[in-house]
Design a protein around this nucleic acid. Structure first.
Lengths: 348, 348
DNA sequence: TTGTACGCGTTATCAA
DNA sequence: TTGATAACGCGTACAA
């Protein structure tokens, strides 16, 4: 085994061929496991590979095969300025890491690389789709943050294999993996009603984004079914701070509140803080149900009763779906919906 | 502007050249901003580019320039089995996301892509270094988890521009960005001593990893300087669960404990739980100081007094350092050490 | 079964 | 200043 030295030209197929005493084509065939090769040469070639320390050049290979062995995770932001404080919050959230972990768990097994792309401008989207069509990656997993996002449509039009995590904002024939958000919100509502809460409110995310609006509608529907045709609501933006101020707002308008469904755990953490400040005990005075079952839920005091969102599993499924679509671009468009479950802990 | 159609062959330089009525070489020059071009042609060419919807093929370009415009974030794990529950924990930690966010904040500005690589086997390392030397990425940022890791040395030997986040376990001439972990531990010790704690213990990370051992030695040294030549310790592995059980162990052996320095916030969260179970009030009975100032610190109850670890800034600096080294491989090996600061909150 | 030769889309060298 | 033409490293028809 050769020790790599700086500056030394790397061995190419040609070098291996010379050492093995065969043609470049034969070496290529052996390496790619083509059947029609003399078993004897097979061994000779592999020896030469070991001797030279040859490693295939992925770029040269991709140029001709039009396959890269890479998929990209695209975080599609809305029009963003160069200085984007939101992005740093996004990355620090458990959400991002859970998705990456789930993707990696299946991609790794297939020897597929993961690249990370952030795009937030019209120009950025055009370049991205162009690069993708050029074979920059074999396919993409899209994490779309804005309520309405032109990217999914562009990808589909461009023939780029794509899978979204979370349903697209507008109707686009694209594969996606999602959670039954309405069901999750229903579970939360029923749990609060079941423990006898009389005045139940909700802290939601931005009303425009699909995941958020689904949780709102699911919650409203179930509450209505139980005689609560109207429920007090306040909107946050999924951050802890926004949850805290939403809770204050809610409390100010409805001092008799005894139960709150919060659309994600991070905001629930903020709500807990606001309630403590207001001198309300959780769950005795006010019961809280979060959403996500993130690490924040068990870290909270009291531990959050929450709705489990199997993000890792969903991301893994998205990866599988993507690999399948890459393999067969003609595959019919499909979606996989995961069922949430209520995780009872101390807060409700 | 052309609307991309599936299957349609993408325009190449040749196509643009034909439309513009010039040679391929000229188009290339215009696109790459070479000076020696007739301003008139300049415009003609750009029009042709717009008309055809041309996007340069990065792979073909990289093949000849040996530059990819990509850097890789390598998570170097110790020998890992295919099924790696640790990895999913790692990604779910705020740590990973903060690093990615910091890196992206500077890479984005330079139009550099980020790729993600996980490697944990000897074979994986060899392939990785081979790919890297082949120009798979222009350079790498290394997050090395194991105590002793052959990867940094391999990268240096291979002439791969690399920057580590956290100092290397063994002496390797590689750039790195690190935190003054000893100083941070000292600050924690002094804070606990300053508030009058008499029996102070520590919950550490794995003793072999550099960041962890530095925190241990810094803590011990400062305690010794104040007359505490020996301090009770228990080791965890940076997870919340391990912090909880380490706290129980510590408490069992030293019931009179009134102060604990915990080597990261996640474990501190676990310690808080164990203390609550044991009926000890924080900070009145036992004061707790964490480490990292992660989002977990403010989410905790009581909010954690902790040591600020400016990971985003450090990752951003690592990215800058890497870009500089890529630009000038002969640059002398350098390291940047960040100073931690104590962030006082409720827990101590 | 093996080798020859061409093409993938660029950049870079060298004449013109 | 511009245009042929040769690399870059590889896969693969096609021929032998």
């Amino acid at each position: 085994m050769q020790r790599g030295r700086v500056g030394e030209r790397l061995p190419t197929l040609e070098d291996v061929a010379r050492v093995a005493g065969v043609s470049r084509a034969t070496v290529s065939r052996v390496i790619n496991g083509i059947r029609n090769v003399d078993p004897q040469l097979h061994e000779v070639v592999w020896n030469a590979v070991g001797q030279t320390g040859y490693v295939p050049n992925r770029m040269a290979r991709s140029l001709v095969t039009r396959r890269t062995g890479t998929v990209a995770l695209i975080v599609s932001d809305s029009e963003s300025h160069d200085d984007d404080p939101f992005m740093s919050r996004f990355f620090a959230d458990p959400y991002f890491g859970r998705v990456v972990g789930g993707l990696m768990s299946v991609l790794r097994r297939s020897g597929v690389q993961l690249a990370l792309q952030i795009v937030g401008t019209e120009d950025g989207r055009r370049r991205l789709v162009g690069d993708l069509r050029n074979g920059q990656a074999d396919g993409v997993v899209v994490l779309s943050l804005p309520a309405v996002d032109p990217l999914p449509g562009m990808l589909v039009d461009g023939g780029v294999p794509a899978v979204m995590i979370g349903r697209p904002g507008d109707a686009v024939p694209v594969d996606y993996v999602d959670l039954a958000n309405e069901t999750g919100a229903s579970l939360a509502a029923e749990h609060l009603l079941g423990r006898g809460c009389q005045q139940i409110g909700m802290i939601s995310g931005p009303a425009e984004v699909p995941a958020s609006s689904d949780r709102i509608s699911g919650f409203r529907r179930t509450m209505a079914r139980h005689g609560h045709g109207w429920v007090p609501m306040a909107a946050g933006n999924f951050t802890q701070d926004s949850g805290e101020s939403a809770m204050r707002t809610l409390l100010a308008g409805h001092p008799d509140l005894d139960g709150v469904f919060v659309a994600n755990d991070l905001m629930a953490l903020g709500a807990l803080l606001a309630l403590r400040d207001a001198g309300r005990a959780v769950p005795d005075d006010v019961a809280i149900v979060g959403f996500d079952d993130s690490s924040a839920a068990v870290a909270a005091t009291p531990a959050l009763t929450t709705v489990r969102h199997p993000l890792e599993d969903m991301a893994a499924e998205a990866a599988r779906l993507l690999l399948a679509r890459i393999d067969d671009p003609a595959m019919r468009v499909s979606s996989v919906i995961y069922e949430p479950a209520l995780v009872p802990r101390q807060s409700a």
